[in-house]
Nucleic acid binder design. Structure first.
Length: 481
RNA sequence: CGGGGUGUGGCGCAGCCUGGUAGCGCGCAGCGUUUGGGACGCUGAAGUCAGAGGUUCAAGUCCUCUCACCCCGACCA
């Protein structure tokens, strides 16, 4: 596929489309729909990983690792689970040149194999709760793939916990949902809506599924993370039992929850503009880039000497800084290059700046001339950049929130529903008392699906937009990735 | 699996209708001039024209088959 990062396109918005689809961060490999992430994009993922992992540790979880291959029979133990995943399994039937007695499934998710292990690890209430997370790759043979948003193989974390009581497991499910929302909002600058999934959309094998839903720049919805309460479904299927304080055998109640490399796509598609990426500072591989400018050799040495001092000052302040020393590119090229890559802050240092002992500070969220501040005293550079990064972090969240709110509409009836969907699109909030069949019909007729039943419903009681029944339930419908 | 489309240097494409020495832009390499918003000149390297078969004196171009990929739907983090 295209190596579209190179500035060959005269039309920047088309280039931006390429960024979303495949450029730089992902491109199709020889295998249909699989994923390639170049180093720069992978660093974004690493920061996502760090942000989540820190929160997992803070909530008492340990990391562990489980097998890539899962015996087919494991999946079949939970009826709903196998039904949900069977169509998209990759199956190994030959090993070492010989037909296997039992096919092995490349994990699409690990509830089953982890359930199997948990049944051996858990014997007593003293073993509970068991709070484990796994960072891994999984494979789902999707019919339709989209770079980052739905790839055949993807990286993710999957948390799997076992608890003594349903209440505790339910509480944990909600707690991890909160962790995801906290990460999305504060690190990725993506405003998300916490909600519960309809029966139709819930995880195969779950009692209840929760999700954080985000709105992309085109108004489509993207499920950016999920947290499931599995009840004792998997505990019964895998015999995860313990003896309680009264010496009675009881089944555990389990949860699972995951966030994937889809989050990288969410960042791109939430914040990107016609100049390319705009990375939230907390996730940016490079937070500040220094572009030196010179003409003569004399100027070069004084500029570079000055620039490396600025670099050191920024690095000392804990800012991820890169000094762009490429000699074969012009400053103008570099400005555009780093803007496309979404670096939040850029410092330009030329002979004029060295002479007046001050630099030019440019911000990515306002590209071009308007985003530049001239004559920033070099003694202040680190705090100024730090302040700018915080400002951009908050600004991106504010922008995305405004974008989401102005594209969220409450609609009172089905005609209005269709009109808004065909018009401005976005999220449709409705009072909802419909059935699964109603939900299916709506999707068939409008291509909008029920994203979630939001946990926060300031609307109060009203009448269902479809059935006219009184209800206090709110649903969000949208076209979704 | 349905419905569309595309396969030509690394990338993006033209050439095909009307057969006659394989081209353009970008990128890449070398040299020189440049460098405050995507630099320029000169020189150069790089292509089994997706594959197979056929028609023809001659096929990137016409015919047949095959393969691959992309887009739009149905499934999904």
């Amino acid at each position: 596929m295209a190596e579209s990062i190179t500035p060959q396109h005269e039309d920047f918005s088309r280039w931006y489309l390429d960024v979303i689809r495949e450029a730089e961060l992902a491109e199709n490999s020889p295998v249909r729909g699989s994923m390639v992430i170049r180093p720069y994009g992978y660093e974004v993922w690493e920061h996502i990983r760090d942000g989540l992992d820190r929160r997992f540790k803070a909530t008492g979880h340990k990391n562990a690792y489980f097998p890539l291959f899962i015996p087919m029979s494991f999946l079949q133990r939970e009826a709903e689970h196998v039904e949900g995943f069977a169509p998209e399994l990759a199956v190994v039937t030959i090993g070492g040149g010989k037909e296997l007695e039992e096919p092995l499934v490349v994990r699409p998710t690990s509830e089953t194999i982890i359930g199997h292990m948990y049944s051996r690890w858990i014997h007593s209430y003293r073993d509970l709760p068991l709070l484990i997370n796994q960072w891994a790759n999984v494979v789902r043979w999707e019919m339709r793939t989209r770079p980052f948003l739905r790839t055949m193989e993807f990286l993710w974390q999957e948390g799997h916990t076992a608890h003594a009581t349903p209440e505790e497991a339910q509480e944990h499910t909600r707690r991890m949902l909160d962790v995801y929302a906290d990460f999305a909002i504060n690190d990725a600058a993506i405003p998300v809506i916490k909600g519960i999934k309809s029966d139709r959309e819930k995880f195969a094998g779950a009692v209840a599924s929760y999700a954080i839903e985000a709105m992309m720049a085109n108004g489509w919805a993207l499920q950016a993370g999920t947290s499931h309460y599995l009840g004792d479904n998997f505990a019964r299927a895998f015999d995860i039992k313990f003896l309680d304080e009264n010496n009675e055998v009881r089944y555990c109640h389990t949860t699972s929850w995951g966030v994937s490399t889809r989050m990288v796509g969410a960042v791109i598609m939430t914040h990107g503009d016609d100049q390319g990426l705009r990375l939230p500072p907390r996730l940016a591989p490079i937070q500040a880039v220094i572009v030196p400018i010179w003409r003569s050799d004399d100027q070069q040495s004084s500029v570079l000497e000055y620039a490396s001092r600025v670099e050191a000052a920024l690095k000392d302040a804990g800012i991820r800084t890169h000094l762009d020393l490429r000699a074969d590119q012009t400053p103008g090229f570099k400005f555009n290059d780093w803007e496309m890559r979404g670096v939040p802050a850029r410092i330009e240092i030329g002979p004029r700046d060295v002479a007046q002992d001050a630099v030019v500070l440019a911000r990515r969220d306002r590209p071009g001339k308007e985003g530049k501040t001239f004559g920033v005293p070099v003694t202040e550079i680190a705090p100024r950049v730090r302040g700018l990064l915080d400002e951009i972090q908050a600004g991106l969240l504010a922008q995305a929130t405004i974008m989401r709110d102005t594209n969220t509409h409450y609609v009172a009836n089905y005609d209005q529903f269709k009109a808004v969907l065909d018009g401005e699109g976005g999220f449709l909030r409705v009072h909802w008392a419909g059935t699964t069949e109603d939900e299916e019909r709506i999707q068939e007729e409008t291509r909008a699906s029920l994203r979630c039943l939001p946990l926060e419903t300031p609307e109060g009681e009203g009448t269902c937009f479809l059935t006219g029944k009184k209800t206090d339930r709110i649903a969000i419908f949208a076209r979704a990735y």
